[in-house]
Design a protein around this nucleic acid. Sequence first.
DNA 1: AACAAAGTCAACCGCTCTGGC
DNA 2: AGCCAGAGCGGTTGACTTTGT
Length: 274
Amino acid sequence: MGRAPCCPKVGLHKGPWTATEDALLTKYIKENGEGHWRSLPKKAGLLRCGKSCRLRWMNYLRPDIKRGNIEPDEVDLIIRLHALLGNRWSLIAGRLPGRTDNEIKNYWNTHLSKRLKGQGTDSGAHNGPSRETPGLKKRKSNNSMNLKKKKSKSKEIEERKETKIHLPKAIRLTSLRNVRNFSVNGVSNGSDDKLGSGLSTYVEVVKQDLGLSWPDHKDDGFLVEGGLDLDFPIHAQMHRKDGRFEKLYEEYMELLNAEEEQMQLNSFAESLWA
DNA sequence: AACAAAGTCAACCGCTCTGGC
DNA sequence: AGCCAGAGCGGTTGACTTTGT
């Protein structure tokens, strides 16, 4: 018995979106907002799967999408976050305003994984792509390519690159279970770890991996042996020039603050490692 | 110029998670 | 508790582009 398809496969457009489809989708979302993706295509007059509409909007049409080359500081952040979070592209993307998970995933697979492999520092060992590298795939030749189409496509891409607005992408932080999967330099924290040390390690990882000079003794108000001190000093807000690290850190602290009492932490632990 | 190989990235697929009932 | 629909995620594909011969 197969899984029911998300939408009827017959009679729907697939493949690259046309300008008309983009316009219809954009117009509809501007008027009605995001969401209800399954019913959206019909209401918007699109012959597309709802998932396809969502993807197109999220990865391409949203006004806050930042296009163009990934900047060096973004690359640095991606590498560090990947070492920290693994292939959790949406989480990584959430820390890179205007960048999409798909974009980062592509960038990683095409540029960084190879580069880091070459340097012998590829942390992709944890959850990295399980199959062959995309670049090693067999490719089809494309003799049928129409030159005119090529040119217009290039122009279109260039035009889109010029129109970019930067806003943070909404982050789904629904599953704290993600925490259990993080790893450092390819070494995952063991599944028999308990939350007390798990969250400590989590913070420790941030500290080490992002190269932040945070105090690690009680007086400076951060890590406590076997537990957490939630009074994190402002002055530890780092030697990093890039404010994204601060933001990232704040998120981690938010996560920690969610469970202030040790008892709560413990029950949280149970749910994590169950 | 023609072709093939390699690289890029938008889009798809299938699975999981979440929340409502 | 179990089911279902909607939404989101990560892996993969393949069309398109660029580069090399």
